[in-house]
Design a protein around this nucleic acid. Structure first.
Length: 908
RNA sequence: GGGCGUUUAGCUCAGCUGGUUUAGAGCGUCUGCCCUACAAGCAGAGGGUCUGCGGUUCGAAUCCGUAAACGCCCACCA
């Protein structure tokens, strides 16, 4: 065996072995297992489906590693673990990629029919789709690949269409003309959740709106105009009124008047509404109902017309402006909205219609996907009524039927549900599930889409033109052009993966649902988590999962989000190549407590790799020993070591179980890490290690292999590859055996029974370790090599239970009394230990050390005495606390006395 | 503008309902070691008035109040 662990071949080999032996595969227990007690408990996780054309990034590594740990742990606990993988069609993101590729080939989307475009999209999906799933295998993910699903495959698509029709019939889906968030780049509506607001330094433009009535002037300034402040001067072409607050003193002179939109010439009325905030800006608000949500509301209230001045890609469309005003505005036709903003301000300035321009900080909404400023736009869209869903989804989280880790996200969740708005689910895209709504072709031709009567819309699962005895009164039906929001399929994921929408009582859904844990980022708590809970209760009357583990965001070590543009995101496959999958898994997990952002640094993977190497070498050491069946010497030492490590291992196993139950995975891994490096490797193996080229006795060897077996199983969920490799080599294994399913917990009950004994053993060995450290400390400070034997004197040395271990570990002889005054001394517990060192001792140094220790002890004693001499403490504190303080006092007094006599002796 | 969270060693974090020998871990730092399992290692050491202030209590990193800094989420002041 090499002295360094080399992961590459080993990982590939075992992953293939696991696949060959179908160890990731899960099935509903067969009918032969009818008896309830033989029915294996399920443990289910559904993967948050990555974008079908995506590639693995560090966020995935974190997320999928956590899921794999949970799944592998459950499998080792004997559960029927099922981790369902799949991908998401990600309509807007994928469509953008396809369009970009077509463009590179010189093809415009607008030149293609829907069918042609979809052909290209499917080609792309088949070509690049699932790359990310292949990458997950490199990480060691134990997904049941036989179940791989896609949000647009047949089962999932049917579920989506079914749910749309069902909700429409229940009155929970409606079509309406609303102000929506419009993405001018992709030319589609977005939901509120897909808009991200950024702070911006922009300008506040104060524009002059001349009063139409001649002779009317501002009584204070004499000006014949009203001043309107706006951040968006390019929208003045759509101005339809100016609104003032009826209570605002300074604008009273404008009541009932009209003003002229600057540079446009439209005469518009002054209207009055309390919505306008007194004291903000000039108190005059321009009302542009087609391009602002609030203005739209005002427009509705006062029955104002809307003038939509933008094309779908947010260029100026002057055709909508009145014919008589065309000469004034024609030059802006076809301009980009931001170019127009500059131009109109310049032009108005030239006409002396700009009062002033101020700096102004505001928030601008951007499209999450295309990163262009969204445009509020009036359009006909489909919506889900959300109040009903909020009502069914709030209670289970608030009363912890579904538990969030960390719990703080309960607040976020509640806040959103209590202020829920309807969900815009239609998108003007082709890649996605097409909305199953049909319009009568003849009627549509007469009315147009906007005025098409609501009650003549046909919503049904199948194409009405194909139906044999369809409900179509006559002629042809035309399908709605829109597709559905991707999340409208994602919210069904835990159900549709088991075909639970169309067949809600099937064997699989009944067995696997509700799933156990959901692992995801808090950024999609509204997009996905909340909506899955809604769908779960609506369609199965049950929660979709019992626990939600929110991961943090992976950042670089400077705390910056990882992004392509910063180039600070390492390629996970490259990391796996350099550190091994196990090393990367450990690296990403180490400082990732639930909900905390993780500051990623390569050095963490390095620590993971080093740990692998450590384990590898422990194994090398043990397997390198020659075993002697006749040997019985060293029994005392080894028996004590085994008893101690047995206790230590049992203690840590319990600790790990507790940490898992709290989803504190990084702490669990750290506990295992310390168990291996400190306790097992640093102490246990040193205790039992035979002298150079000496054999080891059979019982000790077997006990050590058994420990190794348990240690590997404990670590396996975190580091699957190296643990499988070593586990396979501890003993002869049969074909098809694997650590993945090594569920036996041999010594656990025995360990539990002896808990009290264990406590004694653990404490005794901790004491032993401190004595050994004391001696090593003296060696280090005096430059005495470990090979040189020393004498250690302390009271009761001749009856000390761990004398042999102490001799072996510290390389010392023991004596009861120290006759040599020149000795280095230290205290463990209340016992004084002395190492005679006449040729090395430096009296001044020793004195200094002892006096520092004495001062510390005396300070400590003062603190204890302060408490004990306080009557109120003795009266009020719990008796055991007082008792403890008394013990502290007597211990401290003993130590002080010992130190003082040691100092005396040195000075002596 | 609301709401939530964080602030403990150089870095990243534990420390749950106040009392466990006057605060712990990993990494990093410093010192000494290539001692045949491992230098991707071993042994040892140093390092914190627990963000400030005030309060409750016999006792506060821990509970309450307050200030500051940072972070996140939500919200239609043009």
């Amino acid at each position: 065996m090499e002295s360094k662990y080399n992961p590459t071949d080993i990982e590939a080999r075992w992953y293939q072995y696991w696949l060959d032996n179908k160890l990731f595969h899960s099935e509903v227990p067969g009918d032969q297992a009818q008896g309830t007690e033989s029915k294996q408990a399920p443990y289910t996780i559904v993967i948050p489906p990555p974008n079908v054309t995506g590639v693995l990034h560090m966020g995935h590594v974190l997320n999928e590693t956590i899921q794999d740990i949970l799944v592998r742990r459950a499998r080792l606990e004997g559960k029927n673990a099922c981790w369902v993988p799949g991908t998401d069609h990600a309509s807007i993101a994928t469509e953008a990629k396809v369009i970009k590729r077509l463009k590179e080939q010189g093809i415009n989307k607008s030149d293609l029919t829907r069918e042609q475009f979809l052909k290209h999209a499917w080609d792309w999906t088949d070509e690049h789709g699932g790359i990310i799933l292949k990458q997950l295998r490199k990480l060691g993910c134990s997904c049941d690949w036989d179940r791989t699903a896609f949000t647009m495959d047949e089962t999932r698509s049917k579920a989506v269409i079914h749910v749309f029709c069902d909700l429409y019939r229940k009155g929970l889906i409606y079509r309406g003309l609303r102000m929506v968030n419009w993405d001018p780049e992709r030319q589609t509506a977005l939901s509120d959740e897909e808009v991200i607001y950024h702070d911006e330094h922009s300008k506040f433009y104060y524009l002059r709106y001349k009063v139409a009535e001649p002779g009317v002037t501002n009584p204070e300034t004499g000006a014949d105009y009203a001043v309107v402040a706006t951040t968006r001067p390019e929208t003045i072409f759509g101005d339809i009124a100016v609104c003032i607050n009826p209570k605002e003193e300074k604008n009273q002179w404008l009541r009932g008047k009209h003003v002229i939109v600057p540079g446009v010439g439209r005469v518009i009325p002054i209207i009055e509404d309390r919505y306008v905030e007194i004291g903000f800006g000039t108190g005059c608000l321009k009302v542009t109902p087609a391009h602002d949500v609030n203005d739209y509301a005002l427009g509705q209230k006062y029955n104002l017309r809307t003038i939509d001045i933008f094309t779908p890609d947010a260029h100026l469309n002057m055709d909508t402006v009145e014919p008589e005003l065309q000469p004034n505005v024609r030059k802006y036709h076809g301009m980009d909205r931001f170019d127009c903003r500059k131009q109109i301000v310049e032009d108005l300035r030239a006409m002396d219609l700009v009062e002033k321009v101020e700096d102004y900080d505001n928030k601008v909404g951007y499209s999450e996907r295309t990163n262009v400023p969204i445009e509020p736009r009036l359009s006909l869209q489909w919506f889900v009524r959300m109040q009903h869903f909020a009502d069914i989804a709030l209670p289970p989280v608030m009363n912890d039927d579904i538990v969030f880790y960390p719990a703080k996200y309960k607040n976020t969740y509640r806040n959103w549900l209590e202020n829920i708005k309807d969900w815009c689910i239609s998108r003007q895209l082709w890649w996605g599930h097409r909305i199953p709504a049909w319009y009568d072709a003849d009627l549509l031709a007469q009315t147009g889409l906007e005025d098409y009567p609501e009650d003549k819309i046909l919503v049904c699962e199948e194409d009405p033109n194909q139906m044999v005895n369809g409900t179509c009164p006559n002629g042809k039906w035309v399908q709605d052009e829109g597709a559905l929001d991707t999340w409208f399929s994602s919210w069904l994921w835990p159900i549709s993966l088991f075909d639970g929408i169309e067949h809600p009582d099937n064997k699989e859904i009944n067995y696997y649902y509700p799933t156990a844990d959901l692992v995801t980022g808090p950024d999609i708590i509204f997009f996905w988590v909340a909506r899955m809970i809604m769908a779960g209760y609506e369609y199965l009357g049950k929660m979709p999962f019992k626990h939600v583990y929110f991961t943090g965001i992976v950042r670089d070590k400077l705390g910056r989000k990882m992004s392509k543009s910063l180039g600070n995101s390492p390629d996970p496959l490259d990391l796996i190549e350099r550190y091994g999958a196990d090393g990367v898994r450990m690296g990403i997990l180490l400082s990732a407590p639930a909900g905390n952002d993780i500051l990623y640094d390569d050095s963490l993977c390095e620590q993971g790799r080093n740990f692998c190497n450590k384990i590898w070498n422990c194994f090398r050491l043990v397997k390198g020993w020659e075993v002697n069946d006749q040997m019985v010497n060293d029994q005392m030492v080894n028996a004590q070591a085994i008893a101690w490590f047995e206790a230590k291992l049992g203690e840590t196993e319990a600790e790990i179980a507790d940490l898992f139950s709290k989803y504190r995975l990084s702490e669990a891994l750290m506990a295992i890490y310390k168990l291996y490096t400190d306790e097992f490797s640093g102490w246990y193996l040193e205790m039992i290690k035979p002298a150079y080229q000496q054999p080891i006795d059979r019982p000790t060897y077997e006990a050590t292999l058994a420990f190794f077996d348990r240690l590997l199983r404990l670590l396996h969920p975190f580091m699957p590859f190296i643990t499988e490799e070593l586990w396979q080599n501890i003993y002869e294994r049969k074909a098809g055996e694997s650590i993945m399913i090594a569920t036996e917990h041999d010594n656990e009950t025995a360990t539990r029974r002896q808990r009290d004994d264990n406590e004694t053993v653990l404490q005794a060995v901790e004491n032993l370790k401190e004595i050994v450290s004391g001696v090593r400390n003296i060696r280090a400070s005096k430059n005495i090599p470990p090979k040189e034997s020393l004498t250690l004197c302390f009271a009761g040395a001749d009856t000390y239970a761990y004398a042999d271990l102490l001799r072996k570990l510290a390389n010392v002889d023991l004596a009861n009394d120290c006759t040599n005054a020149n000795a280095a001394k230290f205290i463990v517990g209340t016992v004084e230990y002395a190492v005679p060192l006449d040729k090395f001792i430096n009296v001044d140094e020793e004195l200094k050390k002892l006096e520092a220790d004495l001062a510390h002890q005396q300070g400590f004693l003062r603190g204890v005495m302060a408490k004990l001499s306080n009557e109120r403490f003795v009266q009020n504190a719990k008796p055991e606390v007082v008792e403890l303080e008394r013990k502290k006092r007597s211990d401290a007094e003993t130590r002080i006395a010992a130190l003082q006599s040691a100092i005396q002796a040195l000075k002596g």
